[in-house]
Design a binder for these strands. Structure first.
Lengths: 311, 311
DNA sequence: TCGACATATTTGTCCTAGACAAAAATTGAC
DNA sequence: GTCAATTTTTGTCTAGGACAAATATGTCGA
């Protein structure tokens, strides 16, 4: 219990905490009658915290594929029931002792030290490549599911991402700085917030002997073009997560393809690509991480270059 | 030269790449006559790329403290002249061989391998603590300056951040997982995009023997409260960069303070705090990283606990 | 010359309410 | 069942007006 009362929040704060745009919040109010914020002295919207919580719950359900029309107007109890209903099916399956289940259990318990040790041992046991391909990639999907199902909180998902990043970056530093072919410039387009996909791709490409230069998240298209030139990259590697809006992602990708010299390839991987794969010429889609070795090999055959040792 | 013409971009894309809100873009157009986008078949704004570039230049000048009224209406040449005028004073000073100058030179040359080696050697020479306090902290400021002065591109700044992150995370993994006092939950508020500050704080606290749990970037206030409870944190450590809007930052911080149990302290550090330091009760401001040892010591004295060994 | 205070200007965010296209769901034909 | 055509749903965009917070300018006194 805090002594200071939690004040009703303005629309900008709700946009921040729920990820719903101001426009969306206003039009839901107009169409569905919810949320129904109070107004301050200037007539501006002030959202009570219970409405914000309900909006966050709605957001989670939306991410699971439900539609606003059925959710936004519904009473809170129904939302909670729906959330519970979707929680039921999955957790029944699978062996409890698998690395996946263990990870989820440690996350659920917020056991940071245990998680760190678990990931470390797993990496040592599998080796870096198998750790990434056979554990990290499916584990990411599991964590994402568990989060959207409400079984993990945002902070627990963050904890997972942070620990996994530590492991990957630690061992990534041990890969000899590439002098091989091709030179891949790794980054994401603006708006993308998920680092893990990029880091895993970096690891896989590094293990294939490619020379990787990573710019981290959110590089604007124009700067990608500049950087590709400056680093002498033959390939631009992009990572996408489900969080990126489809429409925006497509536009940005087309834009980048148009600005980048044709000789430089674009390899795009990550989530959310089923409807988009066909639509852009000159972009190689990486369906899964374990396709990267093949794609690198094909590139080398096409470009007439060998591995690091021969290039 | 690309065969596909670069398409004019919609307002949402301009918002993303320039950081100027849609409202701002529209009102500048109304007030200053710039930008002046074309309209598509539906009457929606389509910004040509040269206008977007000019907007990015304006944005950079705004960050240096100039005001929109003098910039937005001005012709491109004047903006470039102004940018050049502000570039003049700084680069004259300082020894060329200092680690700072060397880093900037390597960045300017986009020499990733050289940068990596330089940082590695520097870290080994100084040790982790001095590397963070005496090199990384001032270097960050230098890179930020150089960027806002237009001497470094976005991609070069990203490269710096990425390499520095590698070094810090690599050696952070070597610090024994803390069992000491206090337990600090490290994260940033939503909207924050800069990781380095958080990582440096993590390193400093780890070296003081505190038990650190990092959630990475952008944890909503409510989830911070939850996570602090679950991890048994005595302190929530927050990192702020200059990019975060002042008003939003203040509001979010007040909100968090109100929701968090009084027994849990908030330590806030980073840029942009001069005007805000006094305004929030119950928040300890960390003026610079090298103040952390003192703050930790004071905490221990106050709480009547020793270091890790005694706690 | 400098600081403190009152006034004026600048500037970003919020408001309303209407329009429309892309995405999703539904219907119909085969 | 599968594919195409239609309807509904849904988010983003538009316009100009309003206002308060941030910043600049002017005035006074030390």
């Amino acid at each position: 219990m805090s002594t200071v009362p939690v004040p009703d929040v303005p629309i900008s704060a709700v946009e921040r905490t729920t990820g719903l745009s101001k426009d969306t919040l206003r039009i839901w109010e107009r169409r569905y009658g919810f949320p129904r914020p109070r107004r301050d002295a200037q007539g501006e919207r002030r959202y009570p915290s219970d409405q914000v919580h309900k909006l966050q719950l709605i957001r989670r359900l939306l991410d699971r594929g439900l539609r606003p029309g059925q959710l936004v107007g519904a009473p809170l109890e129904e939302l909670i029931a729906r959330a519970a209903a979707e929680d039921a099916p999955a957790p029944a399956a699978a062996e409890d002792a698998s690395p996946f289940e263990t990870t989820l259990r440690l996350l659920g318990a917020c056991d940071e030290a245990g998680l760190r040790a678990h990931l470390f041992l797993l990496l040592q046991r599998l080796g870096l490549q198998r750790f990434v391909l056979e554990f990290a990639a499916p584990m990411n999907a599991r964590v994402g599911e568990a989060w959207s199902r409400g079984q993990l909180s945002i902070s627990q998902e963050h904890l997972y991402s942070e620990q996994m990043q530590h492991q990957l970056r630690h061992w990534l530093g041990a890969i000899p700085p590439g002098i091989g072919q091709p030179t891949v410039l790794l980054t994401t387009l603006p708006g993308e917030l998920h680092q893990l996909g990029l880091l895993m791709a970096h690891t896989c490409l590094g293990l294939e002997g490619a020379r990787c230069v990573s710019l981290g998240l959110q590089t604007p298209a124009w700067d990608i073009v500049e950087a590709a030139r400056q680093h002498g990259a033959q390939v631009v590697g992009l990572s996408f997560s489900a969080a990126l809006r489809k429409k925006n992602a497509l536009e940005m990708l087309q834009d980048l393809r148009a600005r980048l010299p044709e000789a430089i390839e674009i390899w795009a991987g990550g989530a959310l690509w089923d409807p988009l794969r066909r639509s852009i010429l000159g972009v190689t889609f990486v369906p899964r991480l374990d396709a990267l070795p093949r794609i690198v090999a094909e590139y080398r055959a096409r470009a007439g270059v060998g591995t690091a040792a021969h290039g």
